[in-house]
């Protein structure tokens, strides 16, 4: 979904973050960024470039050491609005163990929405719905500590969507799912994005996954170094490689064909678009040969 509102949902203004310690680490170096209601943004960047640090600023898990983060009209430094900020921005991390808070799956999923003070039957409905979305209804009475890696990730995700946040931040939150499971979960999240206007930020090392977003933000060494629609960002093959990133496989293939002299745009990012481009080319070539033969 594209932007529909003149007011950003989250605004970062020249945000710096230095982790203190005997060797301080400057993880964010002046990040300015606006995230709009209903937007689907992917964040990519090499290991240690500051993606998770950035994510933790979006719901006040971390505060800027310089600069400001606003969620709607609330400055995340203002403790009076911490609840509002956390209800607006939901977060899921790669490592699900850190997020398990209860000894039974359904209580774990209910933990967040319970804190929103929802009535009991609404709470029940939300938990049922969230478990269903991630395909974990059959596991509701199981202890979450003893699930497989992918099952834990699904439970963590259910806990976040049960909150019905206006912005859902997924920090490599589907990295351990099987390919079909990852596709299904991402489709469910994208449906929430399109139908209900929930904004989504996905942090991922899968370039294919980033290509599904409306907008790709590239981080390197604590700075935003590229920001734009996938076909534009993945047009910068050389720069991405220099940062330790890559192109989605279909874009790599489009690049190769382009380099071999075929008139295929090198910045194609989806299977469908590449198939279309090749079919068009084939038809055009067919026509050309046809004319040659008959002239």
């Amino acid at each position: 979904m594209s932007r529909t509102s003149p007011v950003p949902l989250v605004r970062l203004e020249n945000v710096h973050h230095i982790y203190a310690g005997s060797r301080p680490v400057e993880a964010l170096r002046g990040v300015s960024l606006a995230l709009w209601p209903g937007e689907h943004v992917a964040v990519i960047g090499p290991n240690g470039s500051g993606k998770s640090t950035l994510a933790r600023h979006l719901n006040a898990l971390l505060l800027p050491t310089a600069g400001d983060v606003w969620v709607k009209a609330w400055n995340t430094k203002d403790p009076r609005h911490l609840q509002d900020v956390r209800a607006t921005v939901g977060m899921v991390f790669q490592h699900p163990d850190a997020q398990i808070v209860a000894t039974v799956v359904e209580e774990d999923v209910a933990f967040g929405p319970e804190n929103l003070g929802l009535p009991r039957d609404e709470l029940r409905r939300r938990v049922d719905w969230a478990l269903d979305v991630v395909g974990m209804s059959a596991f509701r009475r199981r202890p979450p500590h003893w699930l497989s890696g992918g099952q834990k990730q699904r439970v963590a995700l259910a806990g976040a969507i049960a909150m019905r946040p206006e912005l859902l931040v997924l920090d490599e939150a589907t990295a351990l799912l099987d390919p079909i499971g990852r596709r299904d979960v991402l489709n469910a999240v994208m449906r929430l994005n399109r139908r209900e206007g929930m904004a989504v930020v996905t942090i991922t090392h899968f370039m294919e996954e980033a290509a599904l977003a409306d907008r790709v933000v590239v981080m390197c060494a604590g700075e935003v170094v590229l920001d734009g629609p996938p076909h534009r960002v993945f047009g910068h093959a050389e720069r991405l490689r220099a940062w330790g990133l890559d192109l989605p496989p279909v874009t790599q293939l489009a690049h190769r064909l382009h380099a071999l002299g075929f008139p295929i745009p090198p910045n194609i990012v989806t299977v469908e678009a590449l198939v279309e481009a090749i079919c068009r080319l084939q038809v055009a070539q067919g026509r050309e040969q046809h004319t040659q033969k008959h002239s």
Binding site: G45, P46, N47, Q94, G149, E172, A175, L176, H205, M207, R241, G244, L245, D246
Partner: peptide, 13 residues
């Protein structure tokens, strides 16, 4: 067990 999850593309390569 899932050695490449969480590695950036250059790290995977």
């Amino acid at each position: 067990d899932e050695p490449l999850a969480g590695l950036d593309p250059a790290g995977r390569r």
